Computed example of a mutant assay.
Amino acid sequence: MAYPETYQKVLEADQLVRPLAPEDVPAVLDIERQGYSHPWSESVFLDCFKDNYRLWGACHGDMLIAYAVVNYIVDEAHLLNICVHPGARGEGVGRYLLRHVLATAAHEGMSQLLLEVRVSNHAAIALYQDEGFHEVGQRPGYYPAANGREDARVLMRALGH
């Protein structure tokens, strides 16, 4: 998928974040498989269509270009998965979707948003820190990796009400 140089302007004018439906799972899986070395399965995504989850898709026109999966537990939101199509990376889509997740969680009464991120994912870590997240811990061997396991940084951001 190729995007024009003016994609950012188009994105700002034509960006839509909407709830995902089970019918979106094939498009989500396509992005997931292109984005991760150890992608979630279809059954894992389908299992997230429950009351205490929020599944969001960022669209450009009718095309799904990113998604996020958030679990709500009591007053805490946990960002389980966020991924942007490789052809749309670096254009602000991830930030736009993350800000939607944060605003919605705050609006729905969540006090904080937690997430795990691979220690090697410097671009995502920079984005999260830029959006006000700070490290609250690490999870050794949390992610599968090509040569065993990779540690995760646990990041948190308080949500104002």
Rank of each mutant, 00 (worst) to 15 (best):
V70L: 10
C59D: 03
G148D: 04
L127K: 03
L127T: 04
K50C: 09
A124V: 08
R157Q: 11
G94K: 05
E23P: 00
S41Q: 13
G61F: 07
A13P: 00
V101N: 04
Q15V: 08
F133E: 06
K50R: 15
D75F: 01
W56M: 11
Y36H: 15
Y53F: 15
I125G: 04
G87H: 10
P22G: 10
A21Q: 15
G132Q: 10
E131A: 01
G87I: 07
P140N: 02
T104Q: 15
L29Q: 03
S37E: 11
T6H: 13
R149W: 05
R157H: 04
C83A: 14
A77V: 02
E91N: 11
A88L: 01
A124F: 09
F49K: 06
D14Q: 15
F133L: 09
E23I: 07
V119D: 05
H161Y: 06
D51S: 13
G109F: 02
P144W: 05
D30M: 12
Q112C: 13
T104H: 10
V117A: 10
G160R: 14
T6C: 10
S111T: 13
G109V: 09
F133S: 00
T6S: 15
N121W: 03
G90E: 07
A13I: 01
M1K: 11
V117G: 09
I125Q: 15
S37W: 00
Q8A: 14
A27Y: 03
E12T: 11
Y53A: 10
A152V: 02
K50L: 13
L113R: 00
M63F: 04
S120N: 05
D30N: 10
H60K: 01
C83R: 00
E42L: 08
Y96C: 12
S120G: 07
P140I: 08
S41K: 11
E131D: 05
E131S: 04
K50V: 06
G61M: 06
A88S: 11
N52C: 11
A77T: 10
R95Q: 14
M63W: 05
